[in-house]
Design a protein around this nucleic acid. Structure first.
Lengths: 235, 235
DNA sequence: CCATGTGAATGTTTTCACAGCT
DNA sequence: AGCTGTGAAAACATTCACATGG
């Protein structure tokens, strides 16, 4: 039950960084160390299992779950084995139970407040994306250099200017930030979020963010993704 | 080293698929032997080198390039070694030359037409994102189930209905698609793009797309990214 | 039987460390 | 003296294959 989060090293470039060991408190450690790459697959499992469960399918084998997700069955079994034993031999996994269990590990069985910084085109698209809420996240504060200008547009969410990032984030106890500002402003904004106590950041800006070791960063970089695909295109 | 955590881990099955070997044309290309994970880092190198070059810095060591990007120097040297020998011992790399060379490998030294499918909030944000063009991509055709409704909004780019995806994409010779439709429509749209000759797709829908082996897919999945970060948060 | 969970094997990616060139 | 490029080693990740249990 008590899967204590354990942190692995991390990624430098591509897909984000998990919190690094050095700054972690070496607390009572119940579980084996879970590779970040496994942690990054858990949301896919959770999603597939929720879907199956919603479709009234009570159990599923690693084989057919793998088929649905596009990974191998062995990988699913191995990944799950980091957390415990959830299957029944000859039967498979209980979709609802496993789905909820994984959601618990991910801590997405609750709602998280999120601070969004940058209310331009991208920030607005994120705000209006209704898929956020069912996935456990609520944008509770928006920040923009030109707060006054955008105030009216935000749907019931207060828009503050950048100077209030630290104080507001701290006041609300927000742990998650989304960075949707231009590259040049990203590091500054990151520092303010960190100062306010944010521990996880989704970064849309095409820059490498410098963060303390206990902060997790994941990069969303569609441009890099596209540029790496053209490599495979014929001339 | 700084607070920036350096260590790298791989991302195997998570964030997209390179074209599979079986269906690749075994041409003269270097590409077959180059790990996809290396290819996915090249855009970061290209970006950093372009910036350095623009700032008038004529040469750079793997050490300081690494520091700027947030990877290790050894990794940069190893990655580059897949393509050739570009450095001068005792000196480093010529920023402009190496930047242009990598851009050449990635084929981002030219402009690519892109088909965008889905013109909702997300699609519009993508369309208005001006960072696309300098990065080599031009949205040349937009498709939406409700084409007529949105026609007026698109800035000089024709908006077609979904039935015309195959024919238009084929007519314009478009090789790259962006999928910005709801999950339920993603596979259908993908099939139409594939039928029209698209070979690379950026997928924003939270679904596993089934594509022929010669098609590259990269997933953009901010929700999964956020959900994998909450794992590391304290309760 | 069927399908899990896991040691062992294999494959991949990163890092070390240094010979060799400028 | 400084820094690349690369064999060799280490670390990491995936897959195989099967003993085990419902």
């Amino acid at each position: 039950m008590s899967i204590l989060r354990e942190h692995v090293s991390a990624i430098a470039t591509l897909p984000g960084r998990a919190p690094s060991e050095e700054t972690m408190t070496p607390r009572v450690q119940v579980s084996r160390e879970i590779p970040d790459i496994v942690v990054r697959r858990l949301p896919l499992y959770a999603r597939a299992l929720r879907d199956l469960s919603a479709r009234g399918i009570p159990s599923v084998s690693s084989e057919s779950l793998a088929e649905a997700i596009g990974v191998t069955a062995a990988q699913i079994r191995r990944d799950l084995s980091y957390f415990g034993r959830f299957g029944k031999q000859g039967k498979g996994y209980d979709t609802q139970f496993l789905g909820e269990t994984i959601a618990g590990f991910l801590k997405i069985d609750r709602q998280w407040d999120v601070a969004l910084v940058g209310y331009g085109n991208l920030g607005r698209a994120i705000t209006h994306y209704r898929g956020l809420i069912p996935s456990s996240f609520t944008i509770s504060a928006i920040f923009d250099r030109k707060a006054a200008e955008y105030q009216e547009h935000a749907p019931g969410i207060p828009v503050h200017s950048d100077e209030h990032i630290e104080s507001e984030v701290a006041r609300l106890g927000i742990r998650i930030g989304i960075i949707a500002v231009p590259a040049g402003a990203a590091q500054e904004v990151t520092d303010k979020l960190t100062a306010g106590g944010v521990l996880a950041m989704l970064n849309y800006a095409p820059v490498v963010l410098r963060v303390p070791g206990h902060v997790t960063v994941r990069e969303i970089d569609p441009i890099s993704a596209m540029q790496s695909m053209t490599f495979y295109l014929p001339d």
